[in-house]
């Protein structure tokens, strides 16, 4: 049980770190990828919380497709935040 708690804390810090990086970086592509990473780690948390359906959906839709369309849109607009 204690191992699971440690893993949860590590994942929590990963998610928070990725989220802060996504907000603070000037490179929008990195920001989108960091948001995708945060969402992927959250999907592992879903798995730990016994929600496999949600984990699959979050990994494929929340992390995968959302990041893909963000990257497409950034490619069509501009990569750098002023």
């Amino acid at each position: 049980m204690i191992e699971l708690t440690i893993i949860s804390w590590i994942m929590a810090f990963l998610v928070i770190g990725a989220a802060i990086y996504a907000i603070e970086t000037k490179d929008l592509i990195s920001a989108a990828i960091a948001a995708g990473v945060a969402s992927l780690v959250v999907s592992i948390m879903f798995l730990v919380l016994q929600a496999p359906d949600v984990a699959i959906t979050e990994a494929s839709i929340g992390a995968g497709l959302t990041m893909a369309i963000f990257v497409y849109a950034i490619g069509r607009t501009g990569r750098w935040e002023e």
Binding site: D53, A55, I56, T57, S60, I61, G64, L65, A68
Partner: peptide, 13 residues
């Protein structure tokens, strides 16, 4: 586990 939404997302990917 799974269903219409992740399945559709996999097809889209």
């Amino acid at each position: 586990p799974g269903g219409g939404f992740p399945g559709g997302a996999v097809i889209a990917s």
